[in-house]
């Protein structure tokens, strides 16, 4: 029974996350300045980290949590690098 419930919940979670990612993607294309685009990319990486953790629950593999952590580290450094480039500190 709980399996069926989690199966149903999974669709709700995925729906919300995909809708959010779609909105962020629209902002990424529309964004008038490059800063807007970086903001949307930053939000996207956070959403994606949460999505990766949800994947590890869905497939019942604890090992995938490591992937989420690697993604969080690299995403942080990427955003920081872009921001420093805009600032003129690179």
């Amino acid at each position: 029974m709980s399996q069926a419930v989690s199966g149903l919940m999974w669709y709700i979670y995925a729906g919300f996350i995909l809708l959010g990612l779609f909105l962020l993607f629209l902002r990424f294309i529309l964004g008038p300045t490059s800063s807007d685009r970086v903001v949307s990319v930053d939000a996207m990486t956070t959403v994606t980290t949460a999505l990766l953790v949800l994947f590890s629950l869905f497939f019942k593999r604890g090992i995938y949590m490591d992937v989420a952590l690697v993604y969080a580290v690299l995403a942080f450094i990427t955003v920081l690098a872009i921001a420093r480039y805009f600032e003129g500190g690179l």
Binding site: L74, I77, R84
Partner: peptide, 11 residues
């Protein structure tokens, strides 16, 4: 990953 840590310091 280790190289990215150094990138963080450089930034």
């Amino acid at each position: 990953i280790i190289a990215s840590a150094f990138l963080l310091l450089f930034l």
